[in-house]
Design a protein around this nucleic acid. Structure first.
Lengths: 346, 346
DNA sequence: CTGAAAGCGCTTACAG
DNA sequence: CTGAAAGCGCTTACAG
């Protein structure tokens, strides 16, 4: 780049002091409107831009937010959980709207978490986004809290770490799914997805299913649960094992998948077995990724409001940065009905 | 965050000068190993991190790269072109590996492009990634060149703007597709996608198809071309119009889509018409997005090496920043054969 | 190998 | 409304 103009160059050209230039450019009321106009004109002509490093150093803040993404289980480098993508989009937009920059970093849960602190000199606050083993992850949370870092995470509120979480009500989501399935006459479920303490959001979806089943008097409705990571391949494999175990549609009405990716795999496995979705077995997903709509049949799923989530994450983090109080938020998910459960209407 | 320790605090604790602290922490050879060890220990204890703003200001560089994403045609806020996602992943990784931070910004092509220059004070260089109307876009390129900004773009090399592009050989990709189709006995093609100057990469795919057709003596093989944006919905709509126009499979062998998203829509339209892919009509996509593999049938497509592309973009931008020469790069794409064209093997 | 000093380019009290 | 001055926290010649 060309050697940059500084505020002194502008001052010289405008015949005023450098202080006045700084004031004019930051729209301080302490400057004559005509002087301001002249200075702004010159600055534009010289293509002057305030040096952020100098400005930040002086102001002691960076006007930058850092987004830390991590996702352990997926081994494939090139694929990012599609749900993250839409979060990424909304966070980027909300950040920009607030006049902040966004620094992005992909972390491995196994990485030395120090990068976070490094970043913290470059960012006023952190957004943590990712599913990994929550047990490992929780430990890092404690560190961040101890450091008094400004940060917020996407995930279910955790009473051990209050007021740092914004998440979606996965329990409710699971419950919605089960009730929908039951309303269509399905009674015998299997669940694909991890339900241990390391994956609390998936466990919540499972628990939500169970609650609904109980509520509807179908205490024995959950026939099986298979651990699986959120990939099409694992969805396929798990479904094959389920089909083997239960002799296909004779004993199983519906497969509840903890993610759409798994549901896509489940449908393929069912088709490969010569069975049909939803006629023989119903399938549900979670996340409402684009592919769930393109699938044949379209997959009934649960939509988390990522637009709102991104905005809340950013605006609340900004509150934190300005030392305002912030509360945990649990957002309500929405059922997206398509054909994979065989509802009457379409 | 707690009030941060500075290098003076470390110096005081270590009984040395602040200069020595700075040197020790930056691994300068000009410092006694024992002194260094002591200083590093104290720094770690105090959780000291170098202030990037001060450091950058002094060094006059930011150790940060900015990624400008823009994508005009897709109106849906939440969806980002899946191809971008994998580029995003690889760029993030390559940036981190080089010890740089990544600033992300979603731009609208219509936005005031000034944001770019603003950013340029925070970043040592820019990566431009997006498909929009190239005619508009080219204008901004000229501005950046004139500013002597360090930047690189993803896209086909353009002789009017040399040595700023890294792209994939779309002409070759289109040609590979056509040859594959021809080798399977298909002779009558239709193409879905824009082919104007505003979308040079899509036009190149189209031209590649034509070249291959000519080469194989099928000069009249391209029956039609329909403008469409890269969505499932537009792929569907365009296919419906094609099917109407050509009376389905009687006159049409294959639909070549400029993206996988369109191909997914095309397959749905064909199925809705009671026809089968690939038995009645073959379909090809482009990009090899995850959904193209999950589709039934799997979609034959062209894969661009996004991992390598991201790395090249970053390493070459770094060269540019260090005032080294850089050349345009045209990467070779790869044909991914699945079942949507009806190849014999599976 | 170490220290004292200058200076990166701003913003903002302080004085007028 | 404007200017002179201090200082944000570093890095790096310069001198020893």
């Amino acid at each position: 780049m060309k050697s940059k103009a500084t505020s002194f160059d502008i001052a010289y050209a405008a015949g005023v002091s450098q202080s006045t230039v700084s004031r004019a450019l930051s729209d301080s009321p302490l400057v004559n409107p005509e002087t301001r106009a002249k200075i702004k004109q010159i600055a534009a002509d010289l293509n002057y831009k305030v040096d952020k490093n100098a400005s930040n150093l002086r102001k002691q803040k960076s006007k930058t937010l850092a987004l830390l993404l991590f996702e352990d289980p997926t081994p494939d480098d090139s694929s990012i959980n599609p749900f993250f993508i839409s979060m990424l989009g909304s966070i980027t937009k909300a950040t920009a709207k607030a006049g902040y920059d966004l620094l992005i970093s992909f972390q491995n849960l196994s990485d030395d978490w120090h990068a976070v602190y490094e970043d913290s000199n470059k960012a006023d606050g952190l957004i943590l986004l990712g599913y990994g083993n929550y047990t490992d992850y929780e430990h890092k949370l404690a560190q961040l809290e101890e450091q008094e870092t400004h940060f917020l995470r996407w995930g279910a509120p955790d009473k051990n770490h209050p007021n740092i979480s914004i998440g979606s009500n996965n329990h409710e989501g699971g419950s919605m799914i089960a009730k929908h399935l039951i309303s269509l006459g399905h009674k015998r479920f299997a669940f694909i997805g991890e339900i241990n303490a390391g994956a609390p959001e998936l466990k919540a979806r499972y628990d939500g299913c169970l609650s609904a089943l109980h509520e509807m008097g179908l205490e024995e409705g959950m026939l099986a649960q298979v651990d699986a990571i959120s990939t099409e391949a694992d969805g396929y494999k798990s479904t094959v094992s389920l089909l083997d175990k239960f002799d296909g549609d004779k004993q199983l009405d519906a497969i509840v998948c903890a993610s759409d990716l798994m549901a896509i795999g489940a449908i393929r496995a069912i088709n490969d077995r010569g069975l049909k979705v939803p006629q023989d077995i119903a399938v549900v997903g979670y996340d409402n990724i684009p592919a769930s709509g393109f699938s044949t049949p379209g997959i009934t799923t649960v939509q988390q409001n990522t637009m709102l989530a991104g905005q809340l994450l950013v605006t609340n983090l900004l509150k934190l940065i300005h030392n305002e109080e912030v509360k945990d938020i649990l957002m309500q998910p929405e059922l997206v009905v398509r054909r994979s459960c065989g509802n009457a209407s379409n």
